[in-house]
Design a protein around this nucleic acid. Sequence first.
DNA 1: ATGCTACGATACAGATCTGTATCACTTAAG
DNA 2: CTTAAGTGATACAGATCTGTATCGTAGCAT
Lengths: 188, 188
Amino acid sequence: MKKQTAPKDKVFQTAARMFYQHGYRAIGVDTLAADSGIGKMTLYRHYPSKDDLIVAYLKDSDELFWSNFEQITKDVATAREKLLAFFQALQDYVQTPACYGCPFLNVATEYPETDYPGHQVALEHKQSVRARFRHMAEEAGAKKPEVLADQLFLLMDGAYMASRMFGAKNPAVHLAEAARTLIDSALE
Amino acid sequence: MKKQTAPKDKVFQTAARMFYQHGYRAIGVDTLAADSGIGKMTLYRHYPSKDDLIVAYLKDSDELFWSNFEQITKDVATAREKLLAFFQALQDYVQTPACYGCPFLNVATEYPETDYPGHQVALEHKQSVRARFRHMAEEAGAKKPEVLADQLFLLMDGAYMASRMFGAKNPAVHLAEAARTLIDSALE
DNA sequence: ATGCTACGATACAGATCTGTATCACTTAAG
DNA sequence: CTTAAGTGATACAGATCTGTATCGTAGCAT
């Protein structure tokens, strides 16, 4: 049996929570170690730099995103309905107090240089989502799949930012309806 | 005649450029003073704190936004066409290398606490834009004006973030078309 | 029992941050 | 000319940041 919670996991969970809620630059490694109840050297033993910890969090967020994505869309028949289900779930999530925007948009805002490691991971994630949207748009029979995909992409990130700007009560209340309008308009 | 460029204006222009491009937390007052060619005490004489300078920049950005907004929409006849003109201009702008996203979304991301002065200014700005959209949606004859307004609002901020995430070559290429689809769907 | 490894705690180095203090200099008004 | 205000430069204070070094200890396998 492993220990109840390994130090590496403790600091990772603390980092995930605090980076997401307060931002990457606002949280220091001292705060992370103290809040996790571990020594600072233990942190640096598992993550050689703060950037490594940021990247680890982003990669985990990417896996979580796709895990949720599969969960939401797996029991839905058509590509059109998969897209609708995703945007309905996103609408619900961004109106939750647990939502603090999008980890990838947040890191790209705080580290705008595209060669920053965290920004790189964010870019790859967003490109993957964009590609997935395009694939589903094709499957749904859109006349111009890449156009519909990009339009939905803008809606998604707009909803994330509405959450970070306004909190739980934000303009994304009508996100799913907007997605449906764009989708159905692109199919006919 | 005034001086060629007053120190207050010099440091403000430098701050505006660097805050927008690199972020608020990434740029320090020493950098601002040095890059402006003024003394640090001169900066603090005109802006008692860095936060004051941030707020000044945001308020100026708000004025600039509405100035551009009027410029774009003043020669357009109907409310529907005003909205279309705005989103076409926004689409063009966010595909420009001079675009680094939205100053208000950026500050809300870097300072998520809603009681932070800069976040406050950002919130007021976004609420004003949202209200203006709603007003124009009413004027255009939308059946549910607040729904259309919020949908367009998400598109707008999604486009801003696409610019910060991807740079000039981003998914906002189809922003105006998305706006038109949502608008016309809400009018019929 | 005896090493070995991971750990927590602490202190530290060096850089950078916001904000203040001081001083010499320029400029313009009286 | 004289005086006062604004300015640039510099040094500094105190806090905070990332990352390192050190030390005592607890757990564990041999």
